[in-house]
């Protein structure tokens, strides 16, 4: 899985002798370590993936192992938005509003095929990937992803968080949408990523 546990040994030096204990480490490492292991998720569960998210949080898979058992149903106290399930157009402004209400630093996991790309819902009602509305850090494929898949996505996000540097100011820049169109990315790009692909191209004929 590529999780670098040796970094703990190289970065932390714990005093052994004497009555006073001390630790030396890099500030970046300490902050990131703390953040990565206590990500508070904001579950934006809409459809089937929300059920698998519930299963992930429940007894067998136990999300508490990742410091994520504290569901933050208020976006204002959340670190990571987990968008679990399809997002129709009617829900798009809601998702955007929730994302904008979350304070920095914040991350986003797009769980499942529908959230990531529109999935099998290539029709008039569904947003073809939430990355046209909000920025996404980790995409978890699957329809729906198994709990193990979601956990792998979470661990990838933890890896990403651990590699952040406070010196890099651009990390915390809030992306502002274009004030005229309210879109982050240019409309031709949205049309391009929303183009039907694969088998779905041929399944647009009614009848026969």
């Amino acid at each position: 899985m590529g999780l670098d546990t040796r970094r703990v040994e190289t970065n932390v030096d714990v005093g052994s002798a004497g009555s006073e204990s001390w630790v030396t480490t890099k500030l970046d490492f300490l902050v990131n370590w703390g953040r990565a292991n206590s990500l508070w998720p904001m579950p934006f569960g809409t459809a089937c993936c929300a059920i698998e998210f519930m299963a992930t949080a429940a007894s067998k898979f136990d999300l508490a192992r990742f410091g994520m058992e504290r569901m933050s149903f208020s976006p204002r106290q959340a670190d990571v938005l987990i968008c679990a399930g399809r997002v129709p157009f009617k829900l798009a402004p809601v998702l955007r509003r929730i994302w904008q209400q979350m304070p920095q630093p914040k991350w986003c996991i797009s769980m499942g095929a529908c959230a990531s790309s529109g999935g099998m819902f290539d029709n008039y009602a569904v947003v073809q990937g939430i990355d046209t509305i909000i920025p996404v850090d980790v995409y978890v494929p699957g329809c729906p992803p198994r709990p193990e898949g979601l956990m792998y996505g979470i661990m990838m996000l933890q890896e990403k968080v651990k590699k952040e540097r406070m010196a890099d100011k651009s990390l915390r820049n809030e992306m502002e949408p274009d004030p005229r169109s309210q879109l982050y990315i240019p409309p031709p790009l949205i049309d391009e990523v929303s183009e039907p692909f694969g088998n779905s191209v041929h399944q647009t004929r009614s009848g026969l």
């Binding site: 157009f89 009617k90 798009a92 402004p93 809601v94 955007r96 509003r97 290539d122 029709n123 008039y124 009602a125 947003v127 073809q128 046209t132 509305i133 949408p177 169109s181 309210q182 879109l183 409309p187 031709p188 949205i190 049309d191 929303s194 039907p196 647009t204 009614s206």
Partner: peptide
């Protein structure tokens, strides 16, 4: 009514995001 709606995807998205929830 076409399967993917009458407007382009970006236009659909623009219209719904312009609505103030």
């Amino acid at each position: 009514f076409p399967l993917r709606g009458r407007f382009s995807r970006s236009e659909q998205l623009r219209q719904i995001l312009a609505l103030n929830p």
